[in-house]
């Protein structure tokens, strides 16, 4: 295989990953790193660098569409970004210290967890909550458009959400993923944000978090232009196509299938990490 064939194959794979990632809301990065390392035999550090770059591309590309709908809570996003960007710096530091086999195992476990979360979604938007002292101080409460007009909400459990976000930041840059699953968990379940607000705000934060990780990786030589080029272009195109199809489809079965693929990849990553092949 020469570089031209390699680039085309990686590009097409990234396109499919980006497409499915956007359709299912699981993100393309989660499958890209395992596929690049297991199938294309790319060193996991190059794979993580390239994947992180593609995470920024999808986040920035999709954000333009999201902000127009008025769901994103920029104050919550910005406040929690202190946690995610600091976490990202820690993650990038850990990436240089931890053995790649351990990174592979952590990757597998996080994948298993996000596959579990995606098949167990229960978002009851019970918004009859009392205002929270810290949330009020930080002006985190907001409102979002619903069919019945603008609906206000009160944010809860700010310190716990902040802590979970720091972990999301560490995982994002250590593994080169958006770690949207952990972010939505923090905002949706812990801070009791309405589902639409938490998903769009999470997307807003994913790009900033990944930028912190990518900056650190670039200066350490993890980001290879030849590999990142097809990954970034493929994922971006796939995600844009996916977002276009998304408005017409309710991809429940697709979500299950994609979760199945993720579980298989996760087990492969853990196995290869355990026997020290990664």
């Amino acid at each position: 295989m020469n570089i031209l064939e390699f680039t085309l194959l990686v590009g097409v794979t990234s396109l499919v990953a980006g497409f499915l990632g956007a359709l299912t809301g699981l993100g393309g990065g989660s499958v890209l790193v395992p596929v690049l390392t297991l199938l294309f035999k790319v060193d996991i550090r190059y794979a993580i660098g390239a994947s992180l770059v593609s995470v920024i591309a999808t986040s920035s590309g999709a954000a333009a569409a999201y902000v127009k709908e008025g769901f994103t809570n920029i104050r919550i996003g910005m406040f929690l970004e202190i946690a995610t960007t600091l976490g990202a710096l820690v993650g990038a530091f850990l990436a240089t210290k931890l053995p790649t086999s351990l990174i592979a195992i952590i990757f597998g476990l996080v994948l298993l967890y996000s596959a579990y979360l995606s098949t167990h979604t229960n978002h009851d938007d019970s918004l009859v909550l009392q205002p929270d002292l810290i949330a009020t101080r930080l002006k985190l409460d907001g409102s979002y458009p619903t069919k019945q007009g603008w609906q206000s909400y009160h944010v809860q459990n700010v310190p716990a959400g902040f802590g979970l976000m720091a972990i999301a930041g560490v995982l994002s840059s250590l593994l080169g993923i958006g770690s949207g699953a952990v972010k939505v968990l923090a905002m949706d379940r812990m801070m009791k944000l309405p589902f639409k607000v938490s998903t769009t705000t999470s997307n807003f934060m994913i790009g900033v978090t990944a930028a912190a990780g990518a900056g650190a990786y670039l200066s350490r030589g993890y980001i290879d232009p030849g590999l990142s080029m097809p990954v970034m272009l493929g994922v971006l195109l796939g995600a844009l196509l996916g977002a276009r199809v998304l408005t017409h489809a309710q991809p429940k079965i697709l979500r299950l299938v994609f979760s199945g693929i993720i579980v298989l990849l996760a087990l492969q990553m853990i196995y290869n990490g355990l026997i020290g092949r990664i």
Partner: peptide, 23 residues
């Protein structure tokens, strides 16, 4: 990049890190 290096074999199996100018 492809028109110049396209026929060379890819080499990502061993991590060497990027040269200083790309960092």
């Amino acid at each position: 990049y492809l028109s110049h290096y396209g026929m060379n074999p890819p080499n990502y199996e061993i991590f060497r890190g990027e040269p200083a100018d790309l960092r």
